[in-house]
Simulated assay, not measured.
Amino acid sequence: MSEGPDRTPPRDALVRASSSLVMLEVEGRTASGFIATPEGHLVTSLHAVAGARSISAVMSDGVRSEVVQVVAMDERRDLAVLRLPLPDMVPALPLGRGPLPAEGESVYVLRAVAGPAPEVRSLEVRAVQVLGDWLTLMELTRTISEQASGAPVMDSRGVVVGVATAALANGRSLGLVIPSRYVLPMLRAMVTAPLAALEAPRRRAGRVRQVPQHPLSMLEGASPDALESIASTLGQAINVGAPAYNRGDVEGCYRLYARTAEQLIDERGDCPGAQRALRDGLLRCGELSDLDDRAWALRDVFDGLLDVIQRCLQARPAVTAPGRKPPPKRLLN
C-alpha cells in the first residue's frame, strides 16, 4: 500500500477541484460533497445526510449556505444529490465517463476541510468488485474516515472516477468508491423534494439487522459446488429483490425471497444445514404480520447463509478448484 503526499494527481486538476469541494455540517457531524453542475447539484453519500433536518454547506472560501432541496437519492448505491439555493455559487467539478482504475492503481480522495486546501489521501485499489448488474465498485486498500464519505475520488490523470464512501461488510470497515457513471443519471432529475425526503432512508438504515452467525459445522458434508450454487441463487434473488424493495415493491421483494427459500429447501438435500436455516426463516416470517418485516427477516437469513458459505469456502482452499468463483460479497444493502 502506498500513501503519501508525493503521489498526487496533476496540480492544476487539484486546484480546479478545490473550489468545487463542499464540507457538509449535518447536525453536529461533518461529511464531504462536491458541486457537479453549474445549477448547484451537490453530490454526497446518502448515509451521511439521511434523516437530516438541516444541512449547512461550507465552501472552500468559507461562504456558508443552507441546503433545502433534495434532487435524487439512490439507496442501493449510497448516493444523494442535493441542490444549493443559488446556481453558479461554486464551480462545477465534471465527472469522468471513462473506465475505472484497475487493481493496484492509485486513486486520490479529496476531502473538504475548513480552509481552501483539501485533504488529499492517496490509496490503491484493492479490487474492482462486480456485485451484479446493479453495481460495480472499487474497494480500497484502506478504510476512509466517515467525514470523507461523499468526497470525490480522482485517478492519476485528475479525472473524477467516483464518490468515496465508508461502509461495513460482515462487521469489517471498508473504503469504497462508487463510480461516477451512477451519479450522472441522478443529475438529470427534474423534480426536487424538501429535506424531509431524507427521513425515509434514515428509518430503513436504522433497522436492527438480525443476521445469524452460523458455525462452519452447519455446512459439514456439503460440496463446494453445492455451496457455490446456493450462494449464486441467493445472490441473484437479492440482486432482483433489493431493487424492487427500493422502488417500493415490498410485497414483490418478499414473495421473491420466499420462493427462493422454498426452491432451495426442495432442491438442496445435499446441504441440510442450509435447508434448516431457510425453514427456520420461513417459520419466523409466519409469525410476522408486516410485509416489510418479513422481507427483512428473509434477507437476514440469506445474508447469514452467504456469510457462512464464504467463510467455509475460504477455510477449504485445497478443495476449491482454481478459477472457481467465490460467492458474491455483500458490501452494500
Rank of each mutant, 00 (worst) to 15 (best):
M1Y: 11
S2W: 10
D12I: 03
V15S: 03
A17D: 02
V22W: 05
V22N: 06
V22T: 11
V26I: 12
R29Q: 11
T30Y: 11
S32V: 14
A36M: 02
E39F: 08
G40M: 06
G40T: 09
H41Q: 02
H47V: 00
A48D: 15
A48V: 13
I55R: 09
I55Q: 11
S60V: 03
V67K: 08
V67D: 07
V70T: 10
A72V: 04
A72M: 09
A72C: 05
M73P: 00
D74Y: 05
R77L: 03
R83K: 08
R83M: 00
R83G: 02
P87E: 06
D88H: 11
M89D: 06
V90M: 06
L93A: 12
P94S: 10
G98D: 12
G98C: 05
E103M: 09
G104F: 07
Y108P: 07
R111H: 04
R111S: 06
A117H: 14
P118V: 14
S122W: 09
L123M: 10
E124L: 15
R126A: 13
A127V: 14
A127K: 14
V130C: 10
L131H: 08
D133Y: 04
W134L: 06
M138C: 10
R142M: 04
I144F: 07
S145V: 01
E146Y: 06
E146W: 09
A148S: 15
G150V: 09
A151W: 03
M154L: 15
V160R: 13
V163G: 13
A166Q: 05
A167N: 02
A167G: 10
A169W: 07
N170P: 03
N170Q: 14
G171N: 00
G171R: 03
L174S: 06
G175T: 11
S180D: 07
R181A: 00
Y182W: 08
A189M: 03
T192G: 04
T192W: 02
A197T: 08
E199D: 13
Q213C: 06
L216I: 09
S217I: 02
M218C: 09
M218Q: 11
L219G: 01
E220D: 11
A222C: 03
D225Y: 04
D225M: 11
D225P: 11
S229E: 04
S229W: 07
S232G: 07
T233W: 03
G235V: 10
Q236M: 00
I238E: 08
I238K: 08
V240A: 14
G241D: 06
Y245C: 01
E251F: 07
C253L: 06
R255A: 05
I265D: 07
D266A: 15
D266V: 06
E267H: 08
E267Q: 15
G269C: 09
R276E: 01
A277C: 02
R279C: 00
G281N: 11
G281L: 13
S289R: 13
D292V: 01
D292I: 00
R294V: 00
W296I: 00
G304E: 01
G304N: 06
D307Q: 08
L313I: 05
A315N: 12
R316I: 00
A318W: 14
V319I: 09
V319N: 14
A321I: 02
P322F: 12
P326K: 02
P327C: 07
P327N: 12
L331M: 15
L332F: 05
